[in-house]
Nucleic acid binder design. Structure first.
Lengths: 227, 227
DNA sequence: CGTGAACTTGAAAGTTTTCAAAGGGTGTGG
DNA sequence: CCACACCCTTTGAAAACTTTCAAGTTCACG
């Protein structure tokens, strides 16, 4: 469930396009962007149950948002890459948690996102709205994957999706661990590993010696496998 | 992925909080609600690929939104009950389809929903925004279900969720078939049937002779089973 | 009252998980 | 600069859960 507000696609500077007087119409101030802040790998941006005082935009690095069941089972709804917005909530508290997968720089927008939508900054509101809709579409696609695709199809889809979001189309530097991938795709770490090995053996992809870098050798085959 | 715009929960008076002159800022008129229209069970409200000319609000009945894989596997992201909004798209065409599960009355809002958000009707915009956020939260919960819950946990969660959205808390009149339930929960029709039978046998629920009506006998047990 | 669709039930098969153990890489400390 | 740890990843075998295949049964409807 990711808010795909890609900077390259939605490149409006905050409040840049709004008439200067417009904000006078509204009593409540919209969310205030703070300076970009750095987070280390493994850091928690926020945890389930924390007060939802802000939402975030990724400048660099990668963040995962996830939910836990009481016995420890985890579902990662989405990985957020540069340009993505995450942390939008309707209630006063976060119902999921966000952790840094790879050293990241984030911009926090203080205030509830609903205020941004109806509030001061019309341009930010539009960005957020567009991002939410895209996020909904991604969520739908992910539900199809989780509900109806086989393990192999999930891996193929994941690799294809990730490559489309990364700068270099055929070379993927995985920011996340096998465990993260498994928890995103609704599989176990072992299944992920086995299928990656199989795709490598079949010449569809090439997994580097360090295991964190993948080259897509046969994109067409991957598309076939992704269903 | 459902837009839960429950009229009882989102009860802001139309445009009540915005200064009257504000709408003059916007050139484009917002979506125009048409008269409520009736749809028969089985009818397609829209299909994958159709131009996205409107979004809808359920007045009565039930609608399912789903996606298909090329081989026929289907995933139902959500069932939409009275009060819910569905059919919001970012692009010009629908990427999923909507079918009537149970004779329904719908209100169509012509125009793109993004226009409603930035456009003429501030109250509708707020409603849609709130609905989208709730929809995202439901999608997240459903991803957790599809990715990490067992078949029994899925059924228990489904029954509990459904009962919370229906008027009579303990009596569920299922508007959908076993096939629909299976395609929503990422299971097969046989598994759904077996588990419903088992819950009945264990005294947790009571399935009527016609199979479409369920009484929740032991809500606590259901909660335990839903994890 | 007959027909057909929807649902239930049983047995076998299959995919993925679980349990176990070994391999490999990175990082720290000597 | 090398060695020891520790964590991540891979691999194998057995187990488990869910699906698939195949009949029945029931209920709704003509």
């Amino acid at each position: 469930m990711q808010i795909a507000l890609d900077a390259t696609r939605a490149s409006h500077g905050p409040a840049a396009t709004l008439p200067a007087g417009a904000r006078l119409l509204h009593a409540a101030p919209g969310p205030q962007p703070n300076a970009a802040r750095s987070f280390e790998k493994g850091a928690a941006v926020f945890a389930e149950g924390d007060p939802a005082t802000a939402f975030y935009k990724v400048v660099a690095g990668a963040v995962r948002t996830s939910q836990l069941l009481s016995d420890g089972r985890r579902q990662i709804d989405s990985f957020h890459l540069p340009g993505d917005i995450f942390g939008i909530e309707s209630g006063a508290r976060h119902v999921f948690s966000a952790d840094v997968v790879e050293d990241a720089t984030l911009i926090a927008y203080r205030g509830r996102c609903l205020d941004a939508l109806a509030g001061a900054d019309a341009d930010l509101a539009r960005q957020i709205a567009a991002a939410m809709i895209r996020s909904l579409e991604r969520a739908r696609a992910h539900m199809l994957l989780l509900g109806r695709k086989t393990a192999l199809e999930r891996i193929a889809t994941f690799l294809l999706d990730l490559s489309a979001r990364l700068p270099d189309m055929d070379h993927i530097d995985l920011p996340m661990s096998r465990m993260d991938i498994a928890d995103h795709l609704g599989l176990t770490i072992e299944t992920v590993s086995r299928l990656l090995t199989r795709l490598d053996r079949d010449g569809v992809i090439e997994v580097s010696a360090q295991r964190r870098s993948i080259i897509l050798r046969d994109r067409a085959a991957l598309r076939r496998l992704g269903t």
